[in-house]
């Protein structure tokens, strides 16, 4: 290292060694993404807000106001709102992850190769991929928090979060958001831009509907095959984790299992995503 440093001075270039290079480059990448996001703040808010808004409106406001003869009204009452709140937060987290990473990455990897300049940063290429995950996580957190006021204002009977363990809440929120970013990175870096639409139908929609979003995992106990089948779905742990943190009165998985599974999937999807990213930029 010392020989390299003296070499740098010898060539007249500024001394550019030191660990600060990494942090500064990472901050630069983050600022770039932030600039692009602020330019599209309206579309961003609509993108993350529309789904939970309509869900709450239809299932917790419209349905309860329908006549009692409506077969949906029984299941979709005010208690459904309590089940729905953490689930919708999980959906917001996941959709932000897909929209913040998978979609832009698939175009940046496309014919424009816009990612090239960022890949040439003086940091390991993996850091560029990890920045994408972190930036996406920030959007996911905003998206998830937006659901809370909606759940208070929209339903016929307000749904209030009952967070008792703030540390658990923060932990689950951050881990779920990073997990969503890692999933977005994996999809964005490994799927052909032309097929990104198809990914929504064959991956995003199924893992959402089978992700214990609209029902607690414990509710599946009559269908054991399904109850164990969905354990492969990382969304399950996001929903259950938020359920444990935001509405602990609803039956949920044990906290240790949730955290363990979130860590496991974050590790798997994180390394898959980074590897797929490296494959796309280094030949």
């Amino acid at each position: 290292m010392s020989s390299a440093a003296s070499e740098m001075t010898a060539t007249g270039a500024p001394n550019r060694s030191g660990g600060m290079v990494f942090l500064k480059a990472f901050a630069g990448l983050f600022l770039r993404d932030l600039r692009v996001l602020t330019r599209e703040l309206g579309p961003f808010l609509l993108r993350v807000g529309m789904q939970p808004l309509l869900f709450l409106f239809v299932f917790t406001f419209v349905m309860p106001h329908m006549s009692s003869g409506n077969p949906m009204a029984g299941g979709a009452g005010t208690s459904f709102g309590t089940i729905l709140l953490p689930g919708l937060m999980a959906v917001a987290i996941m959709f932000s992850g897909i929209a913040a990473v998978a979609l832009p990455l698939s175009t940046e990897f496309g014919i424009t190769r816009e990612i090239d300049d960022r890949v040439m940063c003086p940091v390991p290429v993996a850091a560029v991929a990890i920045e994408k995950i972190c930036f996406s996580a920030m959007q996911s957190i905003i998206g998830a928090l937006m659901v809370i006021p909606m759940a208070i204002w929209i339903p016929a009977k307000p749904v209030y979060p009952e967070i008792q363990n703030w540390l658990l809440f923060a932990l689950v929120l951050v881990m779920s958001s990073l997990l969503a970013g890692a999933l977005g990175l994996t999809i964005g870096a490994s799927v052909n831009p032309k097929q990104i639409g198809l990914v929504f139908s064959i991956i995003v929609v199924p893992i959402t509907f089978l992700g214990c979003v609209y029902y607690p995992w414990a509710g599946l106990k009559q269908m054991v095959w399904l109850q164990y089948g969905v354990l492969f779905n990382p969304i399950v742990y996001m929903s259950e984790g938020l359920r444990a943190a935001v509405t602990p009165s609803v039956e949920h998985m044990p906290v240790w299992a949730i955290l363990l599974a979130l860590t496991f999937f974050l590790g798997i999807l994180g390394s898959l995503g980074v590897r797929a990213f490296l494959r796309r930029v280094i030949s």
Binding site: R16, M20, V21, K24, A25, A27, G28, L29, L31, R32, R35, V36, R39, T112, R113, E114, D116, D117, R118, M120, C121, P122
Partner: peptide, 26 residues
């Protein structure tokens, strides 16, 4: 590096393309 194809960041202005490049390099 000036690659063979135009890889300018389409989401940023010309000024911002230069500005953020400088930020990436600390």
């Amino acid at each position: 590096v000036v690659p063979q194809f135009n890889t300018l960041d389409r989401s940023l202005t010309i000024y911002e393309n230069l500005y953020f490049h400088c930020r990436y390099f600390g």
